[in-house]
Design a binder for these strands. Structure first.
Lengths: 228, 228
DNA sequence: TATCGGAGCAATACAGTGTATCGACATGAG
DNA sequence: CTCATGTCGATACACTGTATTGCTCCGATA
């Protein structure tokens, strides 16, 4: 019985694990957005049948949870700076940067509690930064307030960014970017304050306005920490 | 040719308009969440074929936009209170209440720019409250910061609410509500600050923590308005 | 070593989705 | 009365998440 007579052994399936699955899903989402992530496509990237994934995840939502947690690892800074304020600021900025790298994150952020290891680690980092500076309740309120601002601001930024991309690519001109509709609405005179704001506001880039708002919120936190 | 010989005239289709379509979609979403809203089901409620809707909307996303704008009408207060701070506070609270009435709004809030008439009106109300109290840029930053906090906080609240509902119905006990997983994670000792917070924090209801965080942010705004 | 149980996997199937296409038909204009 | 027009419904397509089913191979047991 020579080699030539014996058939090749059947090709063993590519080994799989959650890490590989999540990586494939993230790659897909990075390329084409969240709606491009289908279990079939993810499986195809791994040269596997769609049903194979159900050995590792029970539902597509779970895959999303894993994706979010995976990316949250990028948020944790390698070295913790000393100041509580600096720590919170860095965490917020790194969150923003992670979302800009993975825009689909904006669709998921805040949508479910982040209970994965990295999500918990981020929460821990926020709380640790404030630990001992006030009573527990104040600390929690502070952490949650900063985090609420962060996710809210980032979401709006991405929303605007997408809208700009959708309406041609005119970036600087607000009115033109939003098409004739907004212009027409403003012309009705029913939105005088908005009209003034749109007309007179100096355009600042997104990062700076994120930063400014964040600073305000941090100021508020600082004020509350001062008086326990 | 008597009446009996003549066939009935063909039943004319039920007249349709965006208002009716949006109302049907909102009703569906209120009952079963956003994912229960399918063009087929919406159309069925109106005794129409699915394709009929495409005379009024070009895409499902547009339907969502219309839904959001419709519900935003509920946010505008009937009478404007005097104080800028009170105005912003009321707007935030009414936003929260609207989301609690229509939980699906949490999935959409902040996801796209709100360019509909009611959305613009809400923005206008926010800006109008601050109008003249500082330069335009500061006013915009203030409005956006408050709104970022609001949407972020509400989203987290709804996320937690859903998670609680999903894990049995134990509401007060954080650890039990989140199942053994979080308990086990905390037991690793890798999240000391989180552990302390979970253990020692006095449970305050969602509305109160929303209110407190909001007040902090409003304090921050007040401070910036003071010095132009 | 032969057999068997069980696990992992692929194929198939199903109910449902958003939307393009097209043919019929009622309606208003000439 | 005829004809063009535009609206509506049916059909169709490509695709989704997931349940079910049966095969096939691996390792443990007799």
């Amino acid at each position: 019985m020579t080699v030539w007579d014996r058939p090749e052994p059947p090709t063993r399936p590519v080994p799989l694990d959650r890490e590989r699955i999540v990586a494939a899903a993230i790659a897909l989402a990075d390329e084409g957005g969240l709606e491009d992530v289908s279990l079939r496509k993810v499986a195809a990237r791994l040269k596997a049948g769609p049903m194979r994934l159900y050995g590792y995840i029970a539902t597509k939502e779970e895959l999303f949870d894993l994706m979010v947690d995976e990316v949250q690892a990028e948020i944790l800074p390698e070295t913790q700076p000393g100041d509580w304020r600096e720590t919170l600021r860095v965490l917020a900025h790194r969150t923003r940067q992670a979302v800009l790298r993975h825009e689909w994150l904006a669709d998921l952020l805040g949508g479910r509690p982040t209970l994965g290891p990295n999500g918990l680690a981020v929460t821990e980092a926020r709380l640790a930064a404030l630990d001992g500076l006030a009573d527990v309740d104040t600390v929690m309120r502070a952490a949650e307030t900063v985090s609420a601002y962060t996710t809210g601001a980032i979401r709006r930024e991405v929303a605007n960014l997408r809208a700009e991309r959708a309406t041609g690519l005119s970036k600087s001109d607000w009115q033109r970017a939003n098409g004739p509709h907004v212009t027409r609405m403003l012309a009705t005179g029913r939105f005088p304050a908005l009209e003034k704001a749109v007309h007179d506001a100096t355009h600042v880039d997104a990062e700076e306005s994120f930063e400014v708002g964040l600073d305000w919120v941090l100021d508020a936190v600082a004020a509350k920490l001062a008086r326990p």
